[in-house]
Computed example of a mutant assay.
Amino acid sequence: MRLDVSPTPDRLDAELDALQVRLPDYLRHARRLPDAPGLPHYRLHVRTADGEHYVYVHDPVTGRLAGCTVFNRLVEIDKRLDPYVRSPHSRYRPRDQRRGLASWIYGHMLASGVCLLSGARQSPAAHALWRALGARFPLTHAQLRRRQLHDLGTSVSPAQLDALETRLLLCGAGWNATRLAGLCALP
């Protein structure tokens, strides 16, 4: 897993502006999430399509989309894990970063029993978020090979961490790496 993602503020704003144009259509099929503690002025909406979950964060004060998190299905893992494991990807405007939005959204999903597998690359801020969530939910390193997850444990060598096959796995409520192993060959 590489810690080398660094989107520019202009790129984030442009992506979210483009998404905001399509947002009214998406919100027709969305439901409102509870207000995030400490962030009552944001409105969070979630919709599910093809097994993927989309959380849109709207800032009614500015009238803009503050950001979004997508919990993607993983085509590269064993299909028996599909109902239980998602890979989150978040984009938030610079002014809306570091307010706890992604932390609350990820925590909400983990509390509902969904396990989260990181991508092969993360930004340093995303990596810090995963580490912080690891204080509340089981966190382990996993390697993705031949559609199987292999538990690497809670600490790995720098070479293992730098491998693109290495990911972080946050286990949702009721889950741990051993229980996931019962679904498929997770050594």
Rank of each mutant, 00 (worst) to 15 (best):
R121C: 10
L129F: 13
R80D: 12
L152W: 02
S123L: 06
A120W: 12
T178K: 10
S112H: 08
I77E: 04
T140E: 12
C171Q: 09
K79Q: 10
Y84R: 07
V75S: 11
L164M: 13
Q143H: 02
V75N: 10
Q160V: 13
S155P: 03
T154H: 05
S157G: 07
N72F: 04
L164I: 13
L180K: 00
Y92M: 01
L81I: 01
R86L: 12
Q148K: 02
S103W: 09
S90T: 05
S118N: 13
A128S: 13
Q122M: 15
R121V: 11
Q143V: 01
R167F: 10
H127S: 09
A120F: 10
L74V: 07
R167H: 15
R167K: 14
E165S: 13
L161W: 15
P83K: 03
D96A: 04
F71L: 02
L170E: 12
P94C: 00
R93E: 03
P94I: 00
A102V: 11
F71Y: 06
S123I: 06
V156N: 04
R145S: 09
C171D: 12
R80G: 05
A135S: 09
S112V: 03
L129G: 03
G174A: 10
Q148Y: 06
L117V: 12
L144F: 07
L110Q: 06
N176T: 11
G100M: 01
H150K: 00
L110V: 10
D96E: 04
I105Y: 07
